[in-house]
Computed example of a mutant assay.
Amino acid sequence: MAKWGPSSRLPSLVSCDSLVVQGLRCEGGAGVLNLVLSLSLSHTSRWTFNMAPHGNELSEDLKKRIVALHKDGLGYKKIAKTLKLSCSTVARSIQRFNRTGSTQNRPRCGRPRKLCARAQRHIQRMALGNRRMSAASIAAEVEGVGGQPVSAQTIRRTLHQIGLQGCRPRRKPLLKMMHKKARKRFAADKQTKDMDFWNHVLWSDETKINLFGSDGVKCVWRQPGEEYKDKCVLPTVKYGGGNVMVWGCMSAAGTGELQFIEGTMNANMYCDILKQSMIPSLWRLGRRAVFQHDNDPKHTSKMTTALLKKLRVKVMDWPSMSPDLNPIEHLWGILKRKVEVRKVSNIHQLRDVIMEEWKRIPVATCEALVNSMPKRVKAVLENNGGHTKY
């Protein structure tokens, strides 16, 4: 229902003579109509029509409390003051209850639901049973069972109502049962370790850094019709534009040595990297230092094992398929984002920028990543050896 705005106050008296002066006539049964039209035309700057505001619908619990207080003998004003509601809202709720005997709203007009509660439960079971099943496939199966045509959008709307959203799946390593058991054993063994232990661990890993573009998913903000604008496309080049492979290490004390890998790395090359880059970084951590690397065949070869034993390096037992337990994985992500911002154009510049940004990484960043190890171990135990958010 429309009401007059605060700036639309009527004049106290408006005579027909004043209307005649303005070129309007007030005669017969149309006098009131002419009066309203004249005021709306001559006072346009002062007349506004505001729609009555609509508040949120009261919950069933609140309606029942209103009725219960009224039955206890409280009046409208006291109920409104107690529940911080308006008197009109309290009155309507009580009057509706006296009329219908219930606090629930009467059935409203509108198109009835196409899917009954049983069909909605069936859709939910299918979506939870096969998380990769598309809405169109679910709609086809529902139509095949019940014979009632259902659109894919109806399926999506139904799944949204029960809290299921279509999302891009996280990319994680394939974990078999033996991997989960090994991860769980590792977490159970390390859950009692304090930060002094983790601060003496030298973390290591290899990664690839692209010259042009990124292996990750990129998003852009664009308007309709801007799909092919230069700022809204991800440029690619033939053969990938080149990349470099690097080996690096880090600890809570900061980044260690960084070594570029030429060609395909084998056990001989890895042993050279350990002697040239790993040992100096490990010595900085003192006699209690522990070296970490994954179970890559080059890392577990007889040659590598013999070298580490000869150098008296204490190596941490590491579960396979566990990049989420290695904090250097997050450090690679930080490094790649910093390198990508620099917009390098060739391999030589890429090498220089990588080394420069690697040395710029603050110690606080490495320390924060290592400090997350107790939480990572706890997450593995809570997920029974499964995937974690790290």
Results as ranks from 00 to 15, higher is better:
338 K>P: 00
66 I>C: 09
186 F>A: 09
305 T>H: 09
308 L>S: 08
366 C>R: 07
117 A>S: 08
135 A>I: 04
226 E>G: 04
88 S>G: 12
379 A>G: 07
2 A>D: 15
27 E>Y: 00
230 D>E: 10
253 A>S: 12
190 K>G: 06
181 K>T: 11
286 G>T: 00
47 W>I: 13
311 L>R: 15
323 P>F: 07
179 H>P: 06
128 L>G: 06
335 L>G: 02
383 N>C: 08
184 K>T: 09
271 C>L: 00
62 L>T: 14
174 L>E: 15
367 E>V: 01
369 L>Q: 14
339 V>G: 12
249 C>R: 00
149 P>Q: 14
311 L>A: 14
376 R>D: 10
140 A>I: 03
284 R>G: 02
187 A>D: 10
170 R>S: 11
266 N>G: 08
273 I>E: 10
6 P>C: 13
133 M>H: 08
87 C>F: 01
8 S>C: 11
91 A>H: 09
227 E>K: 15
253 A>L: 05
208 K>A: 13
108 R>W: 05
177 M>R: 12
221 W>L: 14
70 H>C: 15
342 R>D: 08
295 N>R: 06
123 I>F: 03
328 I>K: 01
223 Q>D: 12
221 W>F: 09
51 M>H: 13
184 K>Q: 10
194 D>G: 14
91 A>S: 12
73 G>L: 08
195 M>A: 00
304 T>H: 08
347 I>A: 05
64 K>G: 09
114 K>P: 01
319 P>K: 12
345 S>W: 02
120 Q>W: 03
7 S>W: 01
256 G>N: 05
2 A>L: 13
140 A>V: 02
129 G>C: 03
338 K>H: 09
305 T>V: 06
78 K>I: 02
368 A>E: 07
312 R>P: 00
176 K>G: 14
211 L>Y: 03
142 V>A: 10
256 G>T: 02
130 N>R: 05
288 R>A: 05
347 I>K: 14
23 G>P: 03
106 R>Q: 15
346 N>H: 10
312 R>T: 11
343 K>Y: 06
178 M>T: 11
291 F>T: 04
249 C>W: 04
342 R>E: 15
50 N>I: 10
197 F>H: 13
298 K>N: 13
366 C>Y: 06
238 K>D: 09
106 R>F: 06
1 M>P: 12
254 G>C: 05
233 V>R: 11
128 L>W: 00
325 L>S: 07
95 Q>W: 03
107 P>D: 06
53 P>V: 04
224 P>G: 07
145 V>I: 11
199 N>V: 00
243 N>A: 12
31 G>V: 03
266 N>H: 11
110 G>V: 00
347 I>W: 02
89 T>L: 04
235 P>S: 10
262 E>R: 09
171 R>G: 10
18 S>G: 09
133 M>F: 04
147 G>Q: 11
139 A>S: 08
356 E>F: 01
72 D>Y: 03
